[in-house]
Simulated assay, not measured.
Amino acid sequence: MSEAPRNTPRLGFGCMRLPLLDRNDPTSIDIEHFKRMVDTFIEGGGTYFDTAFVYHDGASESALREALVNRYPREAYTIATKCLAWAAPDARTARSNLETSLERLGVDYVDYYLLHNVGGARTAKFDEYRMWDFVREMKSQGKIRNIGFSMHDGAKALDALLTAHPEVDFVQLQANYLDWDDPIVQSRRCLEIARKHGVPVIVMEPARGGRLIELPERAATVLEQAAPGNSIASWAYRFCYGLPNVIAVLSGMSTTEQVRENVSDWKRFGSDPFSIEERRALDDAVKALHAVGSIPCTNCRYCVKDCPQGVAIPNILALLNLEAYTENRAFVKGQYSWQAKAPASACISCGACEDMCPQKIDIVDRLAEAARRYE
Score class of each variant (00 low, 15 high):
L317A: 03
I247A: 07
Q258T: 00
E261K: 12
I276V: 14
P308Q: 06
G293V: 01
C297Y: 01
E257F: 03
R280I: 09
G242H: 03
R301D: 14
E261P: 09
A236Q: 05
D272I: 07
G334A: 15
L282H: 04
V246E: 07
E277Q: 15
A288C: 07
W338D: 04
K341M: 11
I313M: 01
K287C: 06
P314I: 01
K267W: 05
Q258A: 11
V292F: 01
N315Q: 13
L319T: 06
A346L: 12
Y302D: 14
D272C: 03
A340W: 00
K333G: 05
G242L: 04
Q339I: 03
V246F: 03
S337N: 12
N328V: 02
E278R: 05
L320T: 02
R301G: 04
A340D: 10
S264Y: 08
N262S: 08
F269H: 07
R268K: 13
E278V: 02
Y336L: 07
A248W: 02
N299E: 13
S345T: 09
L317T: 00
A285Y: 05
S251F: 06
A288K: 04
L250A: 01
D272P: 00
Y325H: 09
D272K: 12
A236P: 03
N315P: 01
A281F: 06
A248K: 02
G334K: 11
P343C: 04
Q258I: 01
T255W: 09
A318P: 09
V311I: 06
V332D: 06
V249N: 08
A324H: 11
R268W: 11
L317P: 01
S254G: 13
D284N: 15
F269T: 07
K287R: 15
D272V: 08
A324G: 11
S264M: 12
S294P: 11
I316F: 06
T255H: 10
A340K: 03
K341G: 08
A248S: 15
A318K: 02
A324I: 10
E327D: 11
L289Q: 08
W338S: 01
C300Y: 02
I247V: 14
G242T: 13
G270H: 11
A281T: 10
R238N: 08
E261T: 15
W266P: 01
Q339D: 03
V259S: 05
G310F: 05
I313R: 03
F331R: 03
A236N: 00
L319A: 07
R268M: 13
V263W: 08
D272Q: 15
V311F: 03
R301S: 14
